[in-house]
Write a protein that binds this DNA or RNA. Structure first.
Length: 198
DNA sequence: TCTAGGATCGGCT
DNA sequence: GCCGATCCTAGAT
C-alpha cells in the first residue's frame, strides 16, 4: 500500500517508481489487480502537453490542483477515460498518466468488460482500454488512492524494477505540444525475461 | 451560446 | 499504416 508521501515527490520520480506496482480495483462485480508497465509524466504549468499548462484551472482539472495521491480521471475524444495519479501537492498541478499494465488477477472480469474477441495482450495495453477493463470512469475523478479500503489504490508487493528494465520514450499523442512532445517522459517497464541485449 | 479540437481505439486497406 | 467515431471541454463570441 503506497502512502501519501510516495506521491508527494517530483512527478518524474513518482512515475519511475510506479512501474511494477500493483493497481488494485475493488468493484461490486469483483476485484482486478494490474501490474503497471507503462506510465507518462505530465509536469504541470511549465509543460505544454499538460492540461494545466500556463496555470489553466478549470472544472475538469480541479483535481490536479489538489493534494497528491488522488485519481484524476478525464475523458478523451469524447469516448475514452484516462486515469492519472496526482503528484507533488496543492498548487502544483502535476500528474502521472497510467498508460498500461498486465492483468495479475481478475482477468475474467476484465475480459467480460473488454469483449470476448479482445486478445490477451490488448486487454489493458492502453489508457482507455485499462479504464474500460477496470471500470474506471469520470465518476472516479477525485478518488483518494491512499486509504486502505479505497476502491482504487496502488500497492507495492516488493517487485524491484531495475534501471536497465526502464525504457524512456517520447510521449504519445501530444504533437500539439511542440518540442515538449519529444521529452522522454513516457516510462515503460520491460520485464527481465524480455531483455535480450545488455 | 457556438465552435474547434482532442494525453484513443479499433477496423480496414 | 491510415482513418473515422464521438462528445466533452475550453476558449471565443
Amino acid at each position: 500500500m503506497l502512502a501519501r508521501n510516495f506521491y508527494q515527490r517530483t512527478t518524474e520520480l513518482v512515475a519511475r517508481d510506479l512501474l511494477g506496482k500493483l493497481l488494485v480495483r475493488n468493484h461490486a462485480n469483483g476485484d482486478v489487480v494490474l501490474r503497471l508497465t507503462e506510465v507518462e509524466a505530465y509536469l504541470g504549468i511549465d509543460d505544454p502537453a499538460c492540461h494545466t499548462y500556463g496555470g489553466r484551472r478549470t472544472p475538469r482539472t480541479e483535481t490536479m490542483w489538489d493534494e497528491a495521491g488522488y485519481a484524476y480521471v478525464y475523458l478523451v475524444y469524447g469516448l475514452h477515460s484516462c486515469l492519472n495519479v496526482v503528484t507533488v501537492g496543492p498548487g502544483r498541478p502535476e500528474a502521472v498518466l497510467i498508460r498500461g499494465g498486465v492483468v495479475e488477477a481478475g482477468s475474467d472480469l476484465v475480459r467480460a468488460r473488454r469483449g470476448p474477441r479482445v486478445g490477451e495482450r490488448s486487454l489493458t495495453d492502453g489508457p482507455g482500454k485499462l479504464c474500460q477493463g477496470l471500470a474506471i470512469s469520470r465518476s472516479d475523478d477525485g478518488v483518494d488512492l491512499c486509504p486502505l479500503d479505497s476502491a482504487l489504490r496502488i500497492c507495492d508487493d516488493g517487485l524491484e524494477v531495475r534501471e536497465n528494465q526502464v525504457q524512456r520514450l517520447p510521449r504519445v499523442g501530444v504533437d500539439y505540444a511542440g518540442e515538449a512532445a519529444s521529452w522522454p517522459l513516457r516510462l515503460a517497464y520491460i520485464p527481465s525475461e524480455l531483455i535480450t541485449a545488455r
